[in-house]
Design a protein around this nucleic acid. Structure first.
Lengths: 141, 141
DNA sequence: TTAGAGTAGATGCAAACGCATAGAACTTGA
DNA sequence: TCAAGTTCTATGCGTTTGCATCTACTCTAA
């Protein structure tokens, strides 16, 4: 077992443990964590986002995301607009209501995250952010 | 946005990016990644594992895990035995066939993992493993 | 300009999921 | 010793997921 494999396994475990803990917290209202993830991603990007863009950030198949957006549109949290530059495409953005819901959930959740990660020293937080960014950024085959 | 939140977001992104990449690789045979995760967890622990133990490591609800084990038993990869010490419980272990399947998939997958994580320096790998272990280990409220 | 290849997103359908809950076995305290 | 509470796994049921495929649009090159 290489160091790389050990590191990956450790990362997976940390992810699983923390996700379970966050999921168990009573802050999600009537959203699932996955739905929140979509709202959050949309809230971060000011401009409207393409479906395919969004799909790169969310751990969900393209059809599943498409239907999830359906539901979020039905619930009035997201709007689908045609993309003027590419008529196949769709531009997604939050409605005011969607933005409000995202903020209301995001606040307590962000606090949980802070609490959970504060077992690390400031230096470790820095290192973790840098290392994982490097990992995610490496897109070449 | 605190450092902690940035670090967590970065970790989530890395996890999503790598999981998508691994999932896209053609090494899973007729298993899903989640099913492989169960076989892998069982393969690591020599002794039989309790359902609830297993559930701590896998990102899946308890009922979903229960049914997934059903399917793996049906496919002859896992065996369910009664726990002599606790008659509510169940002890899970791999069949020889399950062990074989795990190894056959695990080998190429481990190579992918190594390739993906080798963009990091040995020191960074070390740090990543240590930091994520610290994160996962912190179980108190 | 247009045929063929490629890309974006939606949809049919079976499989898998989560929530609520059941049932059976342990534990605790009166 | 036994009632009340807890823990472990399984099951009913409605919802969500992924795979395969479809349609519509864009891009490329002859």
């Amino acid at each position: 077992m290489t160091r790389a494999n050990e590191a990956w396994e450790s990362l997976m475990r940390a992810y699983a443990v923390l996700m379970k803990r966050f999921n168990a917290e009573d802050v999600w209202g009537d959203l699932t964590m996955r739905e929140y993830d979509v709202l959050y991603t949309l809230s971060k990007c000011d401009g409207p986002l393409r479906m395919s863009e969004l799909n790169r950030h969310v751990l969900l198949s393209q059809p599943a995301l498409s239907r999830m957006v359906d539901r979020l549109v039905d619930r009035g949290l997201v709007v689908r607009c045609p993309d003027p530059g590419d008529r196949r495409g769709v531009r997604l953005s939050l409605t005011p209501d969607g933005r409000k819901v995202q903020r209301e959930i995001g606040l307590p959740h962000a606090r949980s995250v802070t609490r959970a990660l504060n077992v690390l020293t400031p230096q470790e937080l820095e290192q973790l952010a840098a290392i994982t960014a490097k990992l995610a950024g490496n897109e070449e085959k």
